[in-house]
Amino acid sequence: MPETVSFLVDPLPVGTSAEFLESSFREIEPGSPALAVNDLAPHRGDGVFETLAIVDGRVNDLEPHLARLANSARLTDLPEPNLDQWRLVIRRAAERAPADGQFSVKIVVSRGVDPGTVPTGWAHVASVPDFSRERSHGIRVVTLDRGIDRGAGERAPWLLLGAKTLSYAPNMAAIREAKRRGVDDAVFVSSDGFVLEGPTSNVLVRLGDVVVTPPPAAGILHGTTQRRVFAFLESLGRRVAYRDLTLDELRGADAAWLVSSVRMAAPVIEVDGHPLGADAAMTAEINDHLLGAND
């Protein structure tokens, strides 16, 4: 089977009869011309997306990803996505991926061709980099000022801080800045000193016997992997909490991780040049769960 698979999708309205779902998308040659030059996705980043992990043929966290896609569409005033259609697209994409190994499927809904009255969509399956070293040896991070205070997300919802949009240029710039500083990744901090999230990840911090993550109300993306990790830890009787985290708490944490759908849980071993202890046992528990997870 190919390691790269692409589908062009004609997003259907909610309530469309199931008989039309199968004919609403088609497989295309990966890398083939498929996006109109006046589509608003590349011109303005005007669209939303989700990236789901496929582990040994299984799609992780399908429903949480679809729920977040719907929420992002609502926040950006896109038409409500037909989730039955996207379930089918994702299922067909996973069927075309190899049965062994780790892959990702990225689904995208753009506002469409300018002036954006009809959405466009696509799905793409690809192999993912080998993150086993990051998961086992840890990563070094630098904190970067996001330029907004802790309350900006609630005070200015038009900033779309809680939506997963295609406007990822600042996120990619932050990762490049981290590389320029000789480390692996970045953690955004608010201008008033609170930890937010990574450019493509959520932050988890162990303080004593409780694992903490910043609340979605802080203007961060509510992570599907973070939620799965919290549910797993709670099932083991561990304490978890959503609350504000200061930069000093991150630097003095007993352990910390950046978690995301594809990289899973990468332990943080250094913050701004300050060494951080790693909880190897909890890291292994979390990643064993995530790599074997299925809906």
Rank of each mutant, 00 (worst) to 15 (best):
G252M: 05
A18W: 06
F20L: 11
V187W: 07
V205F: 00
P216G: 00
E3I: 14
P11Q: 04
A53G: 12
L221D: 03
L12D: 05
A67L: 04
L204N: 02
L258Q: 10
V187A: 06
G153E: 01
K179E: 15
W158G: 11
S17F: 03
G292T: 09
E270Y: 07
G193E: 04
M172C: 09
L160G: 02
R140W: 08
V210W: 02
Q102A: 13
G193Y: 01
A93Y: 04
P11F: 04
L75S: 03
L8F: 10
P119S: 02
H289N: 09
P11G: 00
Q102S: 14
H289V: 11
N171A: 06
D254G: 14
T143F: 10
A156E: 09
L40H: 02
V113G: 03
G153R: 00
R135L: 12
L35N: 06
T76I: 01
P64F: 03
L204P: 01
L88R: 13
G121E: 07
V210Q: 02
S17E: 12
A174W: 00
M1D: 08
V205P: 10
G151M: 12
R155H: 09
R150W: 12
D39G: 07
R68F: 00
H124N: 13
V189Y: 04
L204H: 00
G273D: 11
V259C: 13
I28L: 09
G252E: 03
A278R: 15
H124W: 07
W122C: 05
D100A: 15
A174G: 13
L21D: 01
P2Y: 05
D130N: 14
P42V: 01
A253P: 11
L66N: 02
T16K: 03
P30N: 08
P215E: 00
E285W: 08
F25T: 01
F25G: 01
E19T: 13
L75N: 04
V229C: 07
A256Y: 01
L40Q: 01
P79S: 06
Q102N: 13
D145I: 00
E80Y: 01
V268Y: 07
R176W: 12
A97R: 09
R155Q: 08
D145P: 05
S110V: 10
I175G: 09
R140K: 15
L247E: 06
I28Q: 06
V211N: 04
D56C: 07
A67I: 05
R251P: 05
P170H: 05
G198F: 06
A156W: 10
D46V: 03
N38D: 13
R243V: 02
P170M: 06
E29Q: 15
E3P: 07
L247F: 03
P129L: 13
L291S: 11
